[in-house]
Simulated assay, not measured.
Amino acid sequence: MSYSSHADEDDDVEIEEEYLGDYASVRSIVKEALPFQILATIGGAVAGFIFAGMTNELEMIPGLIVIAPAVLGMRGNISCTLGSRLGSAIHMGLITKIENNPELTNNIYGSLLLGLIMSIALGIIGHTMTVLLGFESAGILALTSIAVLAGVSSGIILSVIAVLLALGMFRFGFDPDNVVTPSIATIGDIVSMLMLFLSAKVVLML
């Protein structure tokens, strides 16, 4: 084996050790992720407080309590997936700026369209399940309207936050994969619950 081959192997070993030390070590993962996980826990409690303040809306809109957890779960799943895709695209060098970036716009539009489709389905499923289980429902139109308003509005807000967060964390030297998903999950719970609350009020005023 030539000297150059040995040198290449040594370089590969050094790169691997540097990667494990700076990026993939247990210490670096915990150091980056722990603060955001703590914030995620606090954010979940904040979302709970918002939900606790919706007593009047829950009483006046039968079936709202059925779709509320589903709205949070749906929005969290879609937004976290968007955050993960953005993080992967940034690591691959596909997203380096916000302007004129097809990869970025396709991810955002896909996320918003998926949110709209699932919101409509959620309203229909929520009404159907409520009726089948023998409970009173505010009606398929009311529940679907609330789900769509809450899902689309929170989707737009969270898409903007996901993009800014992913690009910002990467530029400041953080790994987006460790930061974006828990952050979006936390912010998503708060934003989705707040939009659900406001959407319920809008429907009650109609």
Rank of each mutant, 00 (worst) to 15 (best):
K97L: 03
D11L: 15
L104T: 05
A47S: 12
S88Q: 09
N101W: 03
I98R: 08
M169E: 04
A150L: 10
V202P: 04
L133E: 13
V26E: 11
A52Y: 06
I78N: 07
P102R: 11
G115L: 09
S88L: 09
I190W: 02
I161D: 06
S84T: 11
L86W: 04
A166R: 03
G173D: 08
L39G: 10
A147G: 04
I50M: 00
N100C: 02
A68V: 12
M74K: 15
E57R: 06
H127M: 08
F174H: 14
V179F: 09
I156C: 05
M74Q: 13
G155P: 02
E136Q: 14
N56M: 00
V191H: 07
P69A: 09
G110E: 05
H127S: 12
I125Q: 11
A68H: 13
I108F: 05
D8I: 11
L164W: 13
V203F: 14
L133I: 09
P182S: 09
D22Y: 13
F170E: 12
I146E: 01
L72P: 01
A142P: 00
S111G: 10
A45L: 15
P102F: 10
Y3F: 09
A121M: 14
V160D: 00
G139V: 09
R171A: 10
G151S: 13
T105N: 12
D175Q: 07
G126W: 04
F170Y: 13
L34S: 09
M1P: 08
T55W: 04
P102N: 08
V131R: 01
S111Q: 08
L112N: 08
V26K: 10
C80N: 10
D22A: 13
I38S: 06
F197C: 01
E103F: 09
S199N: 03
M118L: 13
D10V: 13
L132V: 07
I124H: 00
L198K: 05
T81Y: 05
T55H: 06
K201P: 01
Q37D: 01
H91V: 02
L204D: 05
F197P: 01
M129D: 03
N56C: 00
G126I: 07
L116Q: 06
L158R: 02
I42K: 05
G155F: 02
L72N: 11
E57Q: 14
L141A: 11
G155K: 02
G87N: 08
F36H: 06
A138R: 12
D12C: 01
T181Y: 01
I15F: 14
N101T: 05
P35R: 03
L39W: 13
G93V: 06
L64N: 03
R27S: 12
A138E: 08
F51G: 07
I65C: 04
M193D: 00
Y23R: 15
I78K: 02
L165H: 07
T105P: 01
A150M: 10
I95W: 02
S183R: 02
N106C: 06
L143C: 02
A121G: 15
V148W: 07
D11A: 15
Y19R: 15
I161W: 11
V203L: 14
E18R: 15
D175P: 04
Y109G: 03
S159K: 00
L64E: 02
